[in-house]
Design a protein around this nucleic acid. Structure first.
Lengths: 366, 366
DNA sequence: TTGTAGGCGTTATCAA
DNA sequence: TTGATAACGCCTACAA
């Protein structure tokens, strides 16, 4: 079944010039009236109004229990009324701690890392921290540069959608003395905390599943290096154990979109009617592969079984629906955020190494 | 055609305990050796080593042309060697400007706003700024609280995937005196800069397209208030102009996932064989609607034409592929980032109000 | 329980 | 072109 997509281009609006939106304008609410002040209120202003010293205001906000209830109430009232918010830069400069948590995404274009960042931001925001997004692009030099910047920024914590491989960077990060969560892999010796995923097991599960579905001539597609390499390793190990053959391996450099999966699938298909199943160890590529298979008129899973990894709404929704080694990316972010928040609030987490469960979600494609 | 999705649960690994990943450990590179220092280098250290005063180092980094070439070279060499990075907190405290750009997403769960944030981060990172993500949840109080925080944070700029409706917040933001980009709507009077999209026109285009496909009994589904309301307005206007009937309107509160579209489509379908076309003015809902239609055995577009908005890989890839009023979310973020960076670098943008083109991408669903 | 003194690291301002 | 001085707003350390 060949699917054609046709885009008809039409002008935005009849005359070519857009219609302005009549956006609703809501007049100021009663209490929000102080928005007009150009200058931010300082702790000193609050102190004066409350008839206490600045440090007392500071204490009311950081360690309320150390202040007498009467004073506290009075100060809080002024804080409320003026809408005072402490200057995070001054606070960070003096205390050496900021309320910013830095997140480093291996690939900022990937849906799953964005999901994880989203989950992390959500949890941290509740705890009064803000998430700042950076990108490492799977590159050592970028990573090193980022860590330089961190030394000065002194974030409250760090969340990485990956693990740090460069020893000097590991050491540098550890010496920041802040909570750090690595994720998406399961090393024995994380820098600090870990929300980990066994990529080796993911590969093993994938192989086991395909073999259990009666496949014997397997193919593998994944990213070169890092987690892709680990998934391949598990896949190969299991294949050896089970005595099945891996007839095709393709490692790719970079993946930006679903359509990158099209060419890859054609390679797998061209490499012969040799392979009867392929494990595509990347979420976007796998969906692209399924869609391309249909275009080529391949029957999935009869001609070729396709198994993906990660899980998205779409994997389950396309036709044929995609079987995956599934885990919940948003949950990884949330758990990381929770670990960081707990560590910062003094509640030392009991399990500094958390293990992310995977499951084999079998659908139509295998 | 009814599609069943079946998940088989399997243990992560044979013995229940996961296999640790043998993550590659890369020994420290030659030049990256300074990672070990626990304390960050200060500007004073660099100054001493270079035999100049701290302020000269500062100038070398902020306004190099004002320093003599000889001095500059000497200082830069020391900066390079020590890996000095200025302390952003101290810098922000003294100068009242930070290198952080704040992004406020209307809905942190939405793919398209994440895309926009991603595009914005990418551009800004090149210009030396970092993006910090916040969420306003379409809520006035959240928005007001966020703006309070901004007064103290003094970010370099602000990007919003939406427009601010509350007058007091508009005023407060304007008085921050920093570049602000609103987006996703096309008001006549943005706070500062705008990468705007005419939602009214989107509604008009949608209606026009459906009518041009021979439809006469239209339905509308969208978010209540804000942009949803504007899209409905355009849709209704055009329908009146063309003399076609809108037989069903459904405004929803919140959308978190594709599956929210399932129930909605059933409503539209139940509301009778009355509607022969529906404009679903939300990206996730529209995809959910198409998938659900297929499950219900509805023929799309014969029984019901479905038109969405926004554009994602998936809209084009599902079956039947989804026609949309299309625009590029990532590009909106990039353009916003560029505007902010230009304004900050003194290159005043020529067009402070940029208009985002939409086009009608006709595919199989209409 | 509250307050005083001083400095975090940088850059604006003014002077040379 | 370079430097001396002071201040950004807060919080640590110590004192009362």
């Amino acid at each position: 079944m060949v699917e054609t997509v046709q885009d008809s281009e039409r002008p935005t609006s009849p005359g070519g010039s857009p219609t302005f939106d009549e956006v609703v304008r809501v007049p100021s609410a009663l209490g929000a009236g102080d928005g007009g002040k150009g200058k931010a209120i300082r702790i000193e202003d609050v102190a004066r109004e409350a008839g206490v010293s600045p440090i007392t205001v500071s204490r009311v906000l950081r360690s309320p229990d150390v202040v007498s209830p009467a004073t506290r109430t009075r100060v809080l009232a002024v804080v409320q009324r003026t809408g005072y918010v402490s200057n995070p830069h001054a606070s960070a400069l003096r205390s050496g701690r900021s309320s910013i948590v830095a997140a480093f995404l291996s690939n900022i274009f990937s849906q799953q890392y964005n999901d994880a960042a989203t989950g992390c931001a959500e949890v941290l925001e509740e705890a009064g921290y803000q998430l700042m997004i950076g990108q490492t692009s799977y590159s050592y030099s970028r990573e090193t540069a980022a860590i330089q910047a961190l030394r000065a920024l002194k974030p409250a914590g760090i969340f990485m959608t990956g693990v740090v491989e460069l020893e000097s960077n590991r050491r540098a990060m550890r010496e920041l003395g802040i909570p750090i969560v690595e994720s998406w892999a399961l090393p024995r010796d994380p820098i600090d905390m870990l929300v980990g995923l066994s990529n080796t097991d993911a590969g093993r599960m994938a192989c086991e599943h395909l073999v259990s579905r009666g496949r014997r001539r397997l193919a593998f597609v994944g990213r070169r290096g890092g987690r892709g390499r680990l998934r391949l390793k598990g896949f190969e190990e299991k294949a050896r154990e089970l005595g099945v053959e891996i007839v095709f391996v393709r490692e790719v450099e970079n993946v930006q979109s679903i359509s990158d999966g099209h060419a890859i699938l054609r390679e797998v298909a061209a490499e012969g009617s040799k392979a009867d199943a392929v494990f595509v160890a990347n979420d976007l590529l796998a969906i692209g592969a399924v869609l391309e298979a249909r275009r080529l008129g391949l029957s999935v899973p009869d001609d070729l079984a396709i198994l993906g990894i990660g899980d998205s709404d779409f994997a389950a929704q396309i036709t044929p629906s995609l079987s995956v080694v599934a885990f919940d990316a948003t949950a990884i972010g949330r758990r990381a955020g929770r670990l960081i928040a707990e560590r910062l609030s003094g509640t030392a987490p009991i399990h500094p190494i958390e293990h992310v469960e995977m499951r084999l979600a079998q659908r139509q494609s295998t």
